[in-house]
Simulated assay, not measured.
Amino acid sequence: MNTQKKIRILFVCMGNICRSPTADAVFRHHVKSAGVDHLIEVDSAGTHAYHIGNPPDERSQRTALKRGYKMDDLRARAVESDDFDEFDYILAMDKENLQLLLQRSPRHHHGKIHLFMKYGESYEDDTEVPDPYFGGHQGFELVLDMVEEASQGLLKHLHETIIFNRNNS
């Protein structure tokens, strides 16, 4: 029986209805497609409690579904203090939410809190995923493009640094 602890990843934006559930759905899809869903657990949350219990924004869902990502099962939740202990990677969509996470977390957890786009190979480490909430359809497409690229980069990082090492120990 495999008792190995799963790698736990939390995606965070402000309200947990656009960017972070998109990242959650896209990354879960890629993890499952790569056959490593038994090794990786994915969740998302918001730094603000605006939309607790609500499904992702309909525009996010429609845009994601067109590319084969399903997220209607997700519900918004707020980041909780236990999340800093429970998750191995806490990935913020923008600098404002990154700062809020760093302020709320114990200092010894700061090393696991980063901007998500750090894993996008064609982006700078400090690139933000823009909030599409008040914009048009193109904003949701851009978010999805960015999330897809960073998801691939994160999966590659996990495979090279963690999964590979676990399988060889």
Rank of each mutant, 00 (worst) to 15 (best):
A25K: 07
H29A: 13
H30F: 13
H30E: 12
A34Q: 06
V36D: 05
E41I: 12
E41S: 07
V42N: 02
D43Q: 14
A45K: 09
G46E: 01
T47I: 02
A49C: 15
H51L: 11
P55W: 03
P56C: 08
P56Q: 08
R59S: 03
Q61Y: 05
Q61T: 15
L65V: 14
R67V: 03
M71A: 07
M71E: 01
D72L: 08
D72A: 14
D73S: 09
A76N: 07
D83P: 02
F87L: 12
D88W: 06
D88C: 05
M93G: 01
K95N: 06
E96I: 11
N97V: 03
L98S: 04
Q99N: 09
L100D: 05
H110I: 10
L115T: 00
M117T: 06
K118S: 06
K118V: 10
G120F: 02
E121P: 08
E124S: 12
E124Y: 09
E124K: 15
D125V: 05
D126W: 07
V129F: 01
P130Y: 12
Q138E: 05
G139L: 07
G139Y: 05
F140A: 03
E141Y: 02
D145N: 06
V147F: 06
E148L: 12
S151N: 07
S151R: 11
H157K: 15
H157G: 07
E160Y: 05
T161E: 11
N165Q: 15
R166S: 07
R166P: 04
